[in-house]
Nucleic acid binder design. Structure first.
Lengths: 195, 195
DNA sequence: GAAAAAAAATGAACTAGTTTAAGACTTTTA
DNA sequence: TAAAAGTCTTAAACTAGTTCATTTTTTTTC
């Protein structure tokens, strides 16, 4: 099996066991996607066509607020699932942009194939039940944890939790993730570095 | 069927169809719980025993930060699901308190029965897949929406979205939900009222 | 229904983070 | 490899929200 498919099968196999036949079936429902650095996987206004699994690279998922300021909700790297679930499920236009910060490779599942998947291999209800449950847990933990911290503390936590990602992204993007201006991010970094 | 059971069956029936037998089986796995105003359903340090469905009343779900300040993550009223999923799933001590703000009635499912449910009626994988998916969507929407708003704007949004809940809770609890001090909440309310 | 407890209001002094602006440094592109 | 574009730094003036302290109002409890 090709490396990217092995990667996604390993990911799914964390929660459910698949027969060889089921693996083949699942793989047949996926689409290979490549996206160059600085290219958009999707833009606000689009109706999301796919849910994505990253096999290589790094992308940022963000919205623009009324003032045009970006808010990054996640950096998606190898083995992450991403997309805009709200738009994917409701078929309404998204408010998100997904932009590659490095040349990236992904596997996508279309909405039609996602629905088909549950019919063909009902076990996937369980896979997604557990995946969403875990996403919910870590999402709640993340937002709740950040709530009473200062920007400096949130930055220190991010560095501790994602040491590899810090070095792959710009300070500006980091600011948009932490939720502060690039200027203040710069101030924090020089403050933290001289400790 | 008794009213509270009808309520939960209606809720489940939004996403899956159950036979009479399955309904009976499901109901047999639930526990009826009553909790008086100001009593705790659970406290930080507890390992969560149940996931809850509210059939009557109102509860607040909150944590205390390092400074002892409360942060309310939700007000749970009739037809809401609540609990601490992280603790329920991982069997680790919770960092949440759930306290009734009115005399309340709930249906709980224990961890053992939750696991059993998936064996006995696999359709529930689908129910929870969809429930968690929707929770994730609305959770992401909520946090992302609030991100660039001032406290005053968040308060106005809350009033618009939950007009009934506003009148059931104290200003202090509202402040702990919006994410500001009670003093500033008071200031905002008098400002908004004289507009 | 009086006393105690909790919630709400008000105001002054304070702080974390923003805004604006300008210069220095890096990366991208032709 | 030079020019253009984008990123980072620094600093001064500003603002949304906090803290602390006191008084008034409402709710709870016996």
């Amino acid at each position: 099996m090709e490396a990217p498919y092995k990667r996604i099968i390993d990911n799914v196999s964390r929660f459910i066991d698949l027969t060889e036949l089921e693996k083949q079936k699942y793989i047949s429902l996926l689409t290979e996607i490549k996206v160059k650095r600085k290219a958009y996987l999707m833009q606000a206004g689009d109706i999301t066509k796919y849910e994505y699994f990253i096999t290589k690279g790094c992308l940022k998922v963000y919205t623009l607020d009324e003032n045009g300021a970006p808010h990054i909700s996640m950096f998606a790297v190898e083995d992450y699932w991403t997309g805009d679930m709200a738009s994917f499920i409701t078929k309404q236009p998204s408010r998100y942009f997904i932009k590659a910060t490095e040349d990236s490779e992904l596997l996508g599942i279309s909405r039609a194939n996602y629905d088909l998947l549950f019919q063909e291999i009902p076990k996937f209800e369980r896979f997604y039940r557990i995946l969403y449950q875990r996403s919910l847990i870590s999402y709640i933990k993340r937002t709740n944890h950040g709530i009473s911290l200062t920007a400096e503390e949130r930055f220190i936590e991010f560095k501790k939790k994602y040491p590899k990602i810090v070095n792959r992204i710009t300070q500006k993007d980091l600011a948009a993730y932490i939720g502060i201006t690039p200027e203040f991010m710069s101030k924090i970094i020089s403050r933290v570095n001289q400790m």
